[in-house]
């Protein structure tokens, strides 16, 4: 039980306080890469971590060239033509195609998608 609580707390820490510092960093280390991979639910090989740390650091060094320009008071651009979300009539337009969609699923049973047991 104790283990489960700790695990949950660690999980929340990952979600809300993912990294030690909130200042942009140029150099990522092993711990950063492990935390990012966890946030992304991405399995990576331990021996590849130093290379990821290096290439991600290089990418962020490139990215931080953005800071050479002052963007104070510039409105962020969400859509090149400043389009807004369209609304439509609230009516049914799609038919149920569960069997078709589930025919390509890795594992199904009785019309539901199967995953490993989550709640005991």
């Amino acid at each position: 039980m104790q283990g489960a609580v700790e695990q949950a707390q660690n999980h929340l820490n990952y979600l809300f306080f993912p990294l030690n510092s909130t200042e942009p960093v140029m150099s990522l280390d092993r711990t950063d890469v492990e935390k990012i991979a966890h946030l992304a639910r991405l399995g990576i090989n331990g021996q590849d971590i130093p290379e990821y740390a290096q290439t991600l650091s290089n990418i962020f060094a490139l990215v931080e060239q953005m800071n050479e320009v002052d963007t104070h008071n510039i409105i962020p651009m969400a859509h090149p033509l400043d389009a807004v979300q369209r609304l439509r009539e609230d009516c049914v337009t799609e038919t149920n195609q569960r069997e078709l969609f589930q025919s390509i699923a890795p594992k199904t049973e009785a019309g539901v998608y199967l995953v490993p047991q989550v709640i005991e």
Binding site: P18, T22, L39, I44, Y52, F60, V63
Partner: peptide, 16 residues
């Protein structure tokens, strides 16, 4: 793809 997912995940993570 992994590299880009990680780049994006980091850029969007809390505080960044």
């Amino acid at each position: 793809v992994k590299r880009r997912i990680m780049t994006g995940t980091y850029a969007l993570s809390a505080g960044y």
